[in-house]
Structure formats: structure tokens, C-alpha cells
């Protein structure tokens, strides 16, 4: 009787150990395979020569007040807009409804607005529609002089790319 019990216990114990080893091996192997996948996944990310194009330097010296310059950055258009004092004051005092955001959170220096010129609706490039802002030619979204959407169908304001001033009259887009 006692003997039988011991024999059974040993069998149960062995099974537990085997189960543990089996699962341990499987987990270990799966982790190895996942790690081996990483170089392949990473190889599809931008290569170093592409990453080198991630920064664009813009000279603001020639940009007169009231003018917009379109810069290529990472293959995308960036609007650099030298705003007049009047436009700055106007933007400070207005609020938008679709994607409310205050103007001073969207600029580093109030004179210069830097936004990615891609409509947040379906990716067309809005045109300057006069001194008040931009109009997207595809579906008629309107953006004000802070790049904020004032008329749909676009759901969001024009994105502000990471950028910083390098001296007074130069910005580097791509680095915050």
C-alpha cells in the first residue's frame, strides 16, 4: 500500500518536472526567436542616410513680415510664416472651436509660426488663401494664422514640428 503510493507520487512528480521543462524550453525558444526577429524588423526602419535628412535648417533673415516660406523636411512641406504684429495680436485674442488651443502654445517666438503643411483631414497641402490663413483645396478645410482649424472637415490643427532657434534668425526643424 505504502509502496504503491510512493510509486504514484514519483510518477506525478516526474510529470510535473517534465511539464515545467517543456514549458520552460518553449518560452526560452520563443524568446530567442523573437530576439532574432528584431534585426529584421529594425532593418525596415529609416536607414542612417535617411535619418541624416531628418533635420532641416532654415534661414529666417530673408523672410519679410507677412510672408510664408514652404520648406521640405523629411519629404513633407513645412510652412514657416513671419507674422505681422497685427496678426499676432489677432491670433492671441481668438479662440477656435474644433481643436481649441491657444496661440502661444503653438509658437516658440510669436513672430514665427512653424507648422507641417499637411491637412489633418486627408493629407492634401493647404494653399495660402489670403492674409487670414490657409484653405485646403481638397475638401475646403480652413486654417487661421496660427494653423488652427476654423472650418472642417479637418479634425485637428496643423501639426507643429519639433524645432528650435539657432541664434536669432535661424531655426533647425527636426530637433526640439
Amino acid at each position: 500500500m505504502n509502496k504503491d503510493k510512493t510509486a504514484n507520487d514519483t510518477a506525478a512528480l516526474d510529470e510535473g518536472r517534465r511539464d515545467f521543462l517543456e514549458k520552460g524550453t518553449t518560452v526560452f525558444a520563443a524568446a530567442g526567436v523573437a530576439a532574432a526577429c528584431w534585426p529584421f524588423i529594425a532593418s525596415m526602419n529609416p536607414s542612417r542616410d535617411i535619418q541624416a535628412k531628418a533635420f532641416t535648417t532654415v534661414d529666417l533673415g530673408k523672410l519679410a513680415p507677412g510672408k510664408v516660406e514652404t520648406i521640405g523636411w523629411q519629404g513633407k512641406p513645412v510652412f514657416v510664416f513671419h507674422r505681422t504684429d497685427e496678426q499676432i495680436a489677432d491670433m492671441h485674442s481668438t479662440q477656435t472651436k474644433i481643436d481649441p488651443e491657444s496661440d502661444n502654445k503653438r509658437v516658440v517666438k510669436p513672430e514665427y509660426l512653424v507648422v507641417v503643411g499637411i491637412c489633418t483631414h486627408l493629407g492634401c497641402i493647404p494653399n495660402r488663401s489670403g492674409p487670414e490663413g490657409w484653405l485646403c483645396p481638397c475638401h475646403g478645410s480652413l486654417y487661421d494664422n496660427s494653423g488652427r482649424v476654423i472650418q472642417g472637415p479637418a479634425p485637428n490643427n496643423l501639426a507643429v514640428p519639433p524645432y528650435r532657434f539657432d541664434g536669432e534668425k535661424k531655426i533647425i526643424i527636426g530637433k526640439a
Binding site: S43, N45, R48, D49
Partner: peptide
């Protein structure tokens, strides 16, 4: 093949590109 260019003018350099620029190339 995602990074290689099968043309005489570009093939050699695209292999160098794979070796130097592509992540884990």
C-alpha cells in the same frame, strides 16, 4: 531585396549602403 538595387550603376553602392546605413544591414 528591400534595400538592394539590381542595376549595374547602383548595385555595388547599394550593397555598401546595406553594410553601412541600413539598420542591421
Amino acid at each position: 531585396a528591400m534595400h538592394y538595387k539590381p542595376a549595374a550603376a547602383e548595385a555595388f553602392n547599394s550593397v555598401q549602403h546595406i553594410m553601412r546605413d541600413v539598420n542591421y544591414g
